[in-house]
């Protein structure tokens, strides 16, 4: 027990990233507000980044840092476009509830 508590190893970081990813996935699946869903997607991207950096530390390979940097840039672009879509949807419909966005439903 004290080993788990006081000897923090690679597995701790991996499990932390996995828990973070699961929380983000739960947010995407359960919540209805588009903003919260976007934030949960950001959480999942961060969990993936943390896993990348843990493996980089584990194997001493720096190229994962480059990859994580690119993931951060993609996340920034995704947030900008996603928030623009949210604003556009809100302007037309006065809410951002994803359950009510059924215009493309067959």
């Amino acid at each position: 027990m004290s080993d788990i508590l006081f000897k923090v190893g690679y597995g701790h970081f991996l499990v932390l990233a996995a828990v973070l990813f699961l929380i983000g996935m739960g947010g995407v699946l359960v919540r209805r507000n588009a903003l919260i869903i976007l934030m949960s997607v950001e959480l999942m991207l961060n969990a993936a980044n943390m896993t990348l950096l843990t493996f980089a530390r584990m194997w001493g390979d720096l190229s994962a840092h480059t990859f994580a940097l690119i993931v951060i840039a993609v996340a920034a672009a995704e947030a900008a476009v996603g928030l623009a879509i949210v604003v556009a949807v809100f302007r037309g419909r006065r809410n951002v509830d994803v359950d009510k966005l059924t215009a493309l439903r067959h």
Partner: peptide
């Protein structure tokens, strides 16, 4: 984890 739970 607490912040993430707060978000959700």
């Amino acid at each position: 984890i607490g912040g993430a739970l707060f978000v959700v």
